[in-house]
Design a protein around this nucleic acid. Sequence first.
DNA 1: CTCTTGATCTTCT
DNA 2: GAAGATCAAGAGC
Length: 200
Amino acid sequence: MTPRPKASTPALGKPLKRAFFGRSVHEVAPELIGATLLVDGVGGIIVEVEAYHHTDPAAHSYRGPTPRNQVMFGPPGFAYVYRSYGIHWCVNFVCEQDGSASAVLVRALEPTHGLATMRRRRHLDDVRALCSGPGKLTEALGITIAHNALPLDRPPIAVHARTGKVEVVAGVRIGITKAVELPWRYGLKGSKFLSKPFPR
DNA sequence: CTCTTGATCTTCT
DNA sequence: GAAGATCAAGAGC
């Protein structure tokens, strides 16, 4: 183990209720930057998200409901978890209203709560690599298909509002091949915990 | 640092 | 049969 400074845990904002997510995905996504996501008390500050609207060819919901994406077509404020490349889990927050089928993909966290647990689950020591990608953060937080369709404002999941002002940057989304030009990736300016830097 | 490849689930063609 | 909202490891520079 390499030596590391004693972590100071930032204060949490008030827990976000389900209604917070019942608005345009393009309003909710940038507001989530700086919020804190916890699963059973383990997690960190959201530093990178992407918005997926049902009219967007890159969205899983674009072609209508399937067994995998059905929760996207339900009410806002619930988790949509899916299998990525047959290997990883990725987690979304469902937004807008019933049937809108729009969601925010959580892509990276700055780890703040339960560092030892996350290091154990990821078999990794480097904090910067613990949650710097959508498949990485689900492993660190213990998110699996068992969390699909769970509400975001009840245990084991909690999302706490950000406390101070944050600078949000936007750019094109990552790893997609359709609608690649849409600037619907949002990040915390200057964060060292992104899955990839934003071009300047 | 960049590039390539394998892992193998869900959906679409 | 092929592609995809990914990641880690290995080769090469």
